Amino acid sequence: MDTDQDTFAPAIDPHTHLFPEGLMSAIRDVLTEEAGWEFDHPVARSAVEEILAEAGVETYVALPYVHRPEMARDLNSWLCEQAEVSEMLIPFATVHPEDEDVGNVVREAFEAGARGLKFHCPVQEVAPADPRIEEALAVAAEYDAPITYHGGTAPMFEDNHYVGAELFAELLDSYPELRVCCAHMGTYETDAFVEFAREYDNAYLDTTFAMSTQAEQTMGFDPGSIPDETFVKLSESIMYGSDLPNIPYPYREERAELLGRDLPEETCRDLFYRTAREYLGLPE
Rank of each mutant, 00 (worst) to 15 (best):
W78T: 11
S77N: 05
R73M: 02
F119D: 01
P97E: 02
A129I: 14
K118L: 02
E108Q: 14
K118E: 01
G22Y: 06
V126N: 09
E81K: 13
E49V: 00
M24T: 00
P131Q: 08
V30W: 08
I147R: 12
F110D: 13
Y60H: 15
A11D: 03
I12E: 13
T7S: 14
V43K: 01
V85Q: 14
I90H: 03
V48F: 03
E54P: 03
L137Q: 09
P14F: 07
E54S: 14
A140W: 07
E111G: 00
A136R: 03
E38H: 15
V85G: 03
A136N: 03
D29L: 13
P10C: 13
A9R: 11
A136I: 04
V43S: 10
I90C: 07
E21H: 11
A141K: 11
A72Y: 05
E33Y: 01
I90A: 08
E33H: 02
M24H: 02
R107K: 10
D130P: 08
R132I: 08
T7Y: 14
L31Y: 11
A114D: 02
E58W: 12
A129P: 12
Y143P: 00
S77W: 00
C121D: 07
C80F: 00
R73D: 14
E54C: 09
L18C: 06
D6F: 11
W37H: 13
L137A: 09
P14Q: 09
E70W: 12
E84R: 15
N76P: 00
E87W: 06
P131E: 05
V57C: 07
R132V: 05
A11L: 06
G56H: 05
I90K: 10
L89V: 10
I133G: 09
